[in-house]
């Protein structure tokens, strides 16, 4: 009886350690962005990319503006501007939902950098361009459709 009790206790302690390790692992993507987030960037769909980023169920926000053309003639160069007026924006991620690998770029702000990113992305086909913003430990999202006449991912 006593031995069983010991084992149960041991098991519980073991599980606790694992939980702490998992929590530490979950914290990593946000803290150690210096390392390229391979699982997020190589994800083949939006869900996996979000998972790789450590984002779950971001809330739609009208405070995120995505400036991109309605119709992009050349999918190889689509200008995209994301502005987040959410206070305390710490990072912005840009995804082109139907690209072979949807995650295009992640941007982490520090020291006075505002919630604004301007870039040029490649789009394989007409799809939503989605921005995911992290602010104050919460995630927010917004999307805009861009029609592509000529895909820019080669092949």
């Amino acid at each position: 009886m006593n031995a069983l009790r010991r084992n149960v206790l041991k098991g519980a302690a073991g599980a606790g350690t694992v939980a702490i390790a998992v929590a530490a692992g979950l914290l990593k993507p946000t803290q150690a962005m210096a390392a390229w987030n391979k699982s997020a960037f190589e994800a083949k769909n939006v869900g996996d990319a979000m998972k790789g980023l450590g984002v779950a169920g971001p809330a739609d926000s009208k405070e995120i503006t995505i400036k991109a053309p309605d119709i992009a003639e050349n999918g190889a160069v689509v200008p995209v501007e994301v502005t987040s007026s959410i206070a305390g924006t710490t990072s912005i991620a840009i995804l082109a939902e139907k690209n072979a690998t949807p995650l295009v770029g992640t941007y982490n702000m520090a020291g006075g950098t505002q919630g604004y990113i301007s870039t040029r992305i490649k789009m394989g086909q007409t799809s939503l361009v989605r921005a995911v913003v992290n602010a104050g430990g919460k995630s927010y999202t917004a999307a805009k459709e861009v029609k592509v006449t000529i895909g820019g991912c080669g092949g």
Partner: peptide, 18 residues
């Protein structure tokens, strides 16, 4: 001030404004 990670979806000769 900024740490950005790019995937392959960024256009050739990347432009970045912040």
């Amino acid at each position: 001030v900024l740490n950005a990670d790019f995937g392959t979806g960024i256009s050739k000769n990347p432009y970045l404004g912040f």
